[in-house]
Simulated scan of single mutants.
Amino acid sequence: MPTFRRSLFAAICFIAFIFLIRSSRPAEVPGAPGYQPVQEIFSEEQDRLLHPKKKSKARQQQTLSYGTAPLRERLRYQFPYDLRSRFPAYIWQTWKYAPSSIWFGDSLRAAEASWTELHPGFTHEVISDDTQRHLIQYLYGSLPDVFEAYDALPLAVMKADFFRYLVLLARGGIYSDIDTIALKPAPYWLPDELDRSKVGFVVGIEADPDRPDWHEWYSRRIQFCQWTIVSKPGHPILRDMVAYITEETLRMKRAGILKVGKMDKTVMEFTGPGAWTDAIFRYFNNPEYFHILPGEKNITYEDFSGQTTHRKMGDAVVLPITSFSPGVGQMGAEDIDHPMAFVKHNFDGMVTLSPE
């Protein structure tokens, strides 16, 4: 019996020692040019993952009032962000029909197959329209207002936009449009010297129109790509985007204007690249995630115009226009054989702007 007690006491001491060592280790959040990292940015979420039985007073209060908490807080709670985790090996795509259907167009098969061929260790899912609604209902069952917003969107293109943010927030991985061709495996999209445990989000530049009439062709002077996105689950940019679309959708629904021809926002500014680009810039200029020193200017399009290689901003990496838009023949984009060319967009699978 004394031997058992001594063994039990030694085990308890060892566990307590490990607990103290791990809990004293600071969360690593990468910095960015002109910024000082906020070390405690994800500390509560990281602490919850390391010590699942431990609950702070704020967490206890949030649990008690979960149903009435602000949407962004409920999304944070439901899909915590763990920067130090691996990028999930998922590839998400959507189309009207599954690849097994005879209605899946032959023109899309080579593009769809390129993702499977270059990513043999990944789970590659093409979610059909019939399945998409059920998947969102499953993933967001505890957030009924999010599913209500998704279900209420009047255009297929809006639902396709919303789906990519929703599935990446909940599960992470890669989202890419069905008409994109993978040119290089995703593990090679970031340089070897870049620590993946300090990167949680990867996005490419879609447009960099250095011309006086740029606003006639694009919604923003620098426009970020949304046809291919890489993220770890729970990233704050996706959380912000999901909350924004949900809130705007339900606002218009209650006002009776969530109908084709009556909405007070265009697709571009509601679910598309304009709104997406704004969400990314909000993150880069958010004092919750970066210490912005007095007198420093905001991050703007000027910080990315003319970019030709990777640019790291905090835990996000911005790729140049060549990476996801090679071969377009403008705005500085190189051809598909360039070392920085990773994904080619054929623009064959565009969702039509028509009611479902």
Rank of each mutant, 00 (worst) to 15 (best):
G172V: 06
E216Q: 00
L166I: 05
E73W: 01
P273C: 03
V38G: 10
V351D: 00
R254I: 11
Y244Q: 04
T322K: 10
Y188H: 09
S43N: 01
L166R: 03
P37Q: 00
A16D: 07
V126M: 08
S231A: 15
R59S: 09
D151M: 02
A58N: 12
L139W: 14
Q46R: 15
L83I: 11
K259C: 01
F79H: 15
F201L: 07
F290Q: 12
G272D: 03
T63D: 15
L168G: 13
R282I: 02
R133Q: 15
K253N: 15
A255G: 12
Y218I: 01
T180K: 08
A32D: 05
N286V: 01
F163N: 07
R282G: 04
A341F: 09
E269M: 04
D195M: 09
E334Q: 13
T63C: 07
K312G: 02
N346S: 09
T271E: 05
F342A: 05
P99W: 12
I18F: 11
I205L: 14
R22E: 10
G306D: 11
K96R: 13
M340I: 00
E247P: 04
S176A: 15
T116S: 14
R164G: 05
D179F: 06
Q132S: 13
E206A: 13
S354V: 02
P287H: 04
